[in-house]
Simulated scan of single mutants.
Amino acid sequence: MNQPITVYTLIIAALFGMVQSIRELPYISVDSKQSDEEQFQYKVVIPPVQTTEVNRYICYSKSLEEIGESYITKLLTEPDPIVKPHHVDAGLCLEPLHEDASWDCQRGLACKGDAVEFSVTDNFQSVDKPFYVLPKDVSAKVGGNGKKYFLIVQMHIYEPLKEPASPANITLTFKKKPTKYNYQKFLLGNEGFVPASKPNGFFTHVGCEWKRPTAIAFHYYVHTHVHGIFAEGFLIRNNTWTYLGGQKTRERHQVWFDVVNGPVEIRPGDILASRCLFINNEEKDIDLKSEDTCIFQLSVGYDIQYQEYFARPPGCISTSPDFTFCSNEKTAALCDR
């Protein structure tokens, strides 16, 4: 492209590019209305934490053994307005690093066994009590088969906490009957860096082949830090791309968004791809591990018989700026986008 690319041009292209049709699947519904079946709630208050350092990750685990075999349908996150955590990431874990305790942890849930990443809330959204509701035929199973599950929560805290304070409350809603689909996440993200001096914008690219059984994608989530402004995702099948969705990564009015024209079936051999738009006015590279991040995350439902393929949240990581849509045959359909 010979003409200079402005930030405005990039955003307009990302938001209003050609969107190809997606077949709507009749057997999964994004309707958040739950059935008439009796449900119950379980509230967890995160114990007070304290840190003298900036930019810390703190994890907490809580046994759900007393719940018995049940199925999560909703999750409410209530961040403390004084602590103001950058994000609160909740999930399920079979073998947390510590049981019923808080500890200093790194990025990613500190879980050794089976895990389900459930919901994220971050401080770029306008609402302070995000309520995540699964489609009525999708749930996250807890307990059963002699397994002891834990709720595990990761909290990213920017500023030091000189006095002990509880970063958040988590309320889970359960029902006792299983649903047609189990719930899991699929994350597309970047490692590497954003090159220096990119005031007109720079896209980082991600792409991987889906090598698991068929799953259904129904929600997506986007996230960057201070330099990122936009993220979007795609599905490629037979060299034809389909738009999954895209949003500004800051100043959002909600956390999760419905997949465009979804739900969408992901089949073995499909390619999942994403990209994030960054503005770098600095004369140095931006490290995508320590300084910023690019995340496009899908919520998926899968048939219970394929549990072994989804025991932990699958993901796709590509290195910027080495990986681009044009440099890889599998993502070549997006080369001119």
Rank of each mutant, 00 (worst) to 15 (best):
K33N: 07
V44F: 07
V49L: 01
I28G: 05
D36S: 12
Y27G: 08
S32H: 06
Q41D: 07
R23S: 12
I28A: 15
P26M: 01
L15A: 13
I22E: 07
V49S: 00
E53N: 14
Y8E: 15
D31S: 06
I22M: 06
T52W: 01
K43F: 02
Y8L: 15
Q34S: 08
E24T: 06
I11E: 04
F16K: 10
Y8W: 14
K33M: 09
V7Q: 07
E53V: 05
G17A: 10
S29L: 09
Q20H: 10
V30M: 10
I12C: 04
M18S: 13
I28R: 11
P47C: 04
S29R: 07
T52S: 12
T9R: 10
V30I: 14
E38L: 15
T51F: 00
V19W: 05
T52F: 10
A14R: 04
R23Q: 08
L10T: 08
I12G: 03
S21C: 02
T51N: 08
E37G: 13
I46F: 02
I22A: 05
K43Q: 12
E53Y: 08
A13I: 04
V7F: 09
I12W: 06
L10A: 14
Y42P: 01
M18D: 09
I12M: 11
S21V: 03
P26S: 02
E37R: 12
Q34R: 15
V19H: 10
T6G: 13
Q50G: 03
V49H: 00
V30W: 02
Q39R: 14
S32A: 06
F16W: 13
T9S: 11
V44D: 02
Q34P: 08
T6M: 07
F40H: 08
V49E: 00
E53H: 07
A13K: 15
I28N: 10
E24N: 08
D36G: 12
V44Q: 04
V49D: 00
Q34V: 05
I11Q: 07
E38G: 12
S29K: 07
S32G: 02
Q50W: 00
E24Y: 06
Y8F: 15
A14S: 15
P26V: 00
S29Y: 04
M18F: 09
I12D: 10
Y42S: 06
Q50N: 09
R23L: 09
R23I: 06
E24F: 02
E53F: 08
A14F: 01
E38S: 15
S29T: 13
P47W: 03
Q34I: 09
Q34W: 10
A13D: 15
R23M: 09
I11S: 03
L25Y: 10
D36E: 14
S29I: 11
T6Q: 07
T6I: 11
K33H: 12
S21F: 04
E24I: 05
T9N: 11
K43N: 10
S21K: 06
Y42T: 05
E38H: 14
D31E: 07
E38R: 15
Q20C: 02
V7D: 02
S32D: 04
F40A: 03
Y42A: 01
I11L: 13
S35A: 12
T51K: 05
S35I: 04
E37P: 02
I12A: 11
V7E: 09
Q41N: 13
P47V: 05
